[in-house]
Amino acid sequence: MIKFLDLKQVNDQYQAEILAAAERVIKSGWYIKGEELEQFEQAFAAYCGTQYCIGVGNGLDALTLSLRAWKEQGRINDGDEVIVPANTYIASILAIIESGLTPVLVEPCLDTYNIDHRQIQNRISEKTKVLLPVHLYGQLAEMDKINDIAKAHNLLVLEDAAQAHGAEAFGRKAGAFGDAAGFSFYPGKNLGALGDGGGITTNDAEFADIVRSLGNYGSEAKYQHRYAGINSRLDELQAAILSVKLKHLDNENARRRAIAANYVANIDNRLITLPNLADGKSQAWHLFVIRCDDRKGFMSHLSDNGVQAQIHYPTAPHKQVALRGMTTESFPITENIHDTVVSLPLNPTISDDEVSHVIEVCNAYVSP
């Protein structure tokens, strides 16, 4: 069976470096908010092309703390609206709700799966304060057009870059397009820790200071609490491991792009809709997502022929029990995407022979 993702195999590539980093942290006797975190934050900020990176507990916290920091700055208030794609992972919307704000859902483009900038304009109201584009599956949203809209309406832009480490366009990387960006370092991400982790990038010094405080119980100095904060910190061990893996990220992304290009060039089946292959430099290819009307039958075919696939994501956020009552609107494009998407295996450790087998199995699929 070709696994969808084998994290052991991914991390085994760097086992010696990871063990050395872990040993260094253990022997240091310092495990929270130390030199390892500072070094990773500086390195990741430089990688993304921003002045600051703040390590936090996870990707959800990265979005939530960003919104909360803007509230502390007086730039947004309870009940303000945040425009977000309707087909995102639920975390994007949970961050908005948790921050006391109101999510406004917008349909995506079917060919990119990212928010349709043409529909954003129609959803802006006097209460709109933030645009939250999601670089879904590793492809950058149309940030030039989104930023133009934000500038015209004096809106803040928060990138959800949880799946887009290293995605690039216009000579800039994900995390450097908005006023701030939230990243996840969940183990399965392109840049993944060996546990939960997240980060926020920005060029706003005051914002960065507030985020650091909010994630440290609202404290700017020991036992002095300016804000009603939370505990959300990227620990020394995960920071050290991420520093190791950051050095290899570009090479891994290059391998992802090569696999994706192979899939696009050679999967030829009218029953399968392939993703849009954008400029290779702009797509991080966190996931390779196709669509198939008979998803159940197609996934059974893959499994029967030794290919493990997954669904990202089977249920649209507005259809989740947790968000019932959030909206009465219909989102047919979003619902179609969630009903038909299938993620094929794509990670840097898949061999060329395995890629060829996935292609052969996809091409052999016939409708029942």
Score class of each variant (00 low, 15 high):
residue 187 P to R: 04
residue 1 M to L: 06
residue 347 N to P: 01
residue 263 Y to V: 04
residue 205 A to I: 08
residue 348 P to E: 11
residue 341 V to M: 13
residue 268 D to W: 03
residue 200 I to D: 06
residue 296 K to W: 05
residue 2 I to H: 10
residue 234 L to F: 12
residue 309 A to S: 15
residue 297 G to A: 09
residue 361 V to G: 08
residue 202 T to P: 12
residue 58 N to W: 15
residue 49 G to Y: 05
residue 161 A to D: 11
residue 306 G to T: 05
residue 261 A to N: 11
residue 35 E to L: 07
residue 206 E to Y: 13
residue 46 A to N: 10
residue 287 L to S: 13
residue 109 C to L: 15
residue 196 D to M: 14
residue 104 V to N: 05
residue 155 L to D: 05
residue 294 D to W: 14
residue 340 T to M: 08
residue 83 I to T: 09
residue 201 T to K: 10
residue 241 I to G: 02
residue 193 A to C: 07
residue 33 K to N: 14
residue 216 N to T: 15
residue 197 G to D: 14
residue 337 I to L: 15
residue 81 E to C: 05
residue 274 L to K: 15
residue 55 G to Y: 14
residue 345 P to G: 05
residue 186 Y to K: 06
residue 84 V to R: 02
residue 316 A to I: 11
residue 274 L to T: 01
residue 94 L to F: 15
residue 185 F to G: 02
residue 26 I to L: 07
residue 226 R to V: 03
residue 160 D to H: 06
residue 90 I to Y: 12
residue 103 P to M: 12
residue 147 N to F: 04
residue 163 Q to G: 03
residue 176 A to D: 05
residue 350 I to W: 00
residue 254 A to E: 10
residue 315 T to E: 09
residue 361 V to A: 09
residue 81 E to G: 07
residue 295 R to G: 00
residue 43 A to I: 06
